[in-house]
């Protein structure tokens, strides 16, 4: 069997599941969930150090950036300026060139502001960043991002943290068909089967945070997602059977008593 390789910006990933590290009860739980998910890339945020509470544990004590790929994000940024500032700081921190850009446009829906997103992508690519971009599921804008040099197109399935699953399969399919860079569903996946559907449609990967962190048993859900993504990918590569309007028996008719 030909090996199925997943590459983003020349980085080879073993898993097509990327996980977020927010919303967990503790860093311990985060680390356990990440381990169980089998993901080799995690998203992380950049925030102010709490200068008064020096004993507070830090993420890097639980998730070793030498063993797992850190993908710094710009969550919470509403302008291109803020997003650029955040990613430049992230690069200074550990030399990270592979980053996730998200520029939000609305507090209620956390819908991406595509005008600012496109602008930021252009600047970041020019500065040598490899940019994975959170975006709307508009095929034209996705194409534009690719033209601007995005390393991965990351359309939302539905609003961040909503758990509503893929709302516009047609648009996602159009994006998959036209893109030469990986298409990774980011945001909105609610449960393991949503991830399988995304992978069966031909997505290159999925990024999950809330669906795992907000599950009653996050660590078990992390495993469910690992298996769901593998199942979806295998199913996509296998090529599904044709749909028929009438039944065809599974057992042979010959030799019937």
């Amino acid at each position: 069997m030909k090996k199925d390789i997943f590459k983003v910006a020349n980085k080879r990933l073993k898993s097509r599941l990327i996980v977020g590290t927010g919303k967990y009860k503790s860093f311990k739980e985060t680390a356990q969930a990440v381990k169980e998910s089998g993901a080799d890339m995690v998203t992380i945020a950049v925030r102010r150090v709490n200068i008064l509470d020096k004993k507070k544990p830090i993420l890097t004590d639980y998730l070793n950036p030498k063993k797992i790929i850190y993908l710094p994000n710009t969550a919470g940024c509403f302008t291109s300026e803020d997003a650029l500032r955040t990613l430049r700081l992230a690069r200074e921190m550990g030399g990270w060139k592979l980053v996730k850009l998200e520029v939000l446009g609305d507090k209620k829906t956390l819908y991406p502001n595509m005008v600012e997103t496109l602008k930021s992508t252009k600047v970041l690519v020019k500065e040598g960043f490899k940019v994975m971009v959170y975006c709307t599921d508009d095929p034209l804008l996705a194409k534009k991002l690719e033209d601007y040099g995005a390393s991965a197109i990351m359309p939302l399935a539905s609003p961040i943290g909503s758990g509503l699953g893929i709302q516009s399969k047609v648009n996602i399919s159009l994006i998959i068909k036209q893109s030469k860079v990986p298409v990774i569903i980011d945001a909105g996946i609610g449960t393991a089967s949503d991830a399988t559907i995304a992978m069966e449609m031909g997505c290159d990967g999925v990024l999950i945070n809330s669906a795992i962190a907000n599950a009653k048993k996050p660590i078990m859900m992390a495993r469910a997602f690992k298996n769901a993504v593998i199942a979806g990918r295998d199913s996509y590569l296998s090529g599904r059977m044709k749909k028929n309007y009438f039944a065809t028996p599974s057992s042979p008719i010959d030799g019937l008593i």
Binding site: I44, R47, R48, Y70, N73, R85, I160, L207
Partner: peptide, 29 residues
């Protein structure tokens, strides 16, 4: 508002009204 490279921490003096932001990585989606 200007990023300071790690190598310059010992050379950079602070003066009145300076604004310093110290950031690190935390969990995020």
């Amino acid at each position: 508002k200007i990023i300071v490279p790690r190598a310059s921490y010992k050379k950079k003096y602070l003066k009145n009204n300076d604004k310093l932001e110290v950031v690190h990585f935390i969990g995020g989606g």
